[in-house]
Nucleic acid binder design. Structure first.
Lengths: 73, 73
DNA sequence: TGCGAAATCACAATATATTGTGAGTTATGA
DNA sequence: TCATAACTCACAATATATTGTGATTTCGCA
């Protein structure tokens, strides 16, 4: 998981729910610029910002042991 | 997942690996104070900070749909 | 092609994370 | 109990995220 992947997940989920950036930003209580940066993978959001956006989208963060990445073997 | 849970996961994983805070901070390339705050759940780390610490500990972040929390039903 | 919504960008102001230093506290083992 | 390591805290300096505003570009559709 990196910033770009995360941004794509958030953008895809938002589109799946049929809301635009401004609406999601309002619902999550974050600035539009912040959401834009995160979706583009150019952001380095704070944990609280990320968690509120994920929660608003019905997503959650999990932590687990690193999986083997056969792409890199 | 919230800041406190995350801090506990990181602290437990670090202890499981048998390293102290200073060593983990050095390995992850973050300041000791930053790691301390995160482990205590008092931090609001930036995504990059969190990802480097998790990676150093052999952990990774996943995003998934919110699970039903029967505790709150 | 043309229109309207959506998305992106640039800027300055503000808030907050991060850092190192140094001191203090707590835990652990001899 | 004592010594040492591990952990926590306070502070100031720096770096960076966040915000709103307004302009611009891109997208989706008729």
């Amino acid at each position: 998981m990196n910033a770009k992947e995360l941004g794509n997940i958030i953008k895809e989920r938002r589109k799946h729910l049929g809301v635009n950036q401004q609406t999601l930003a309002d619902l999550a209580g974050v600035g539009l610029n912040t959401l834009v940066a995160i979706e583009r993978g150019e952001g380095n959001p704070q944990l609280s910002t990320l968690l509120t956006i994920l929660d608003t989208l019905g997503l959650q963060m999990d932590i687990c042991l690193k999986t083997l990445d056969y792409e890199t073997v």
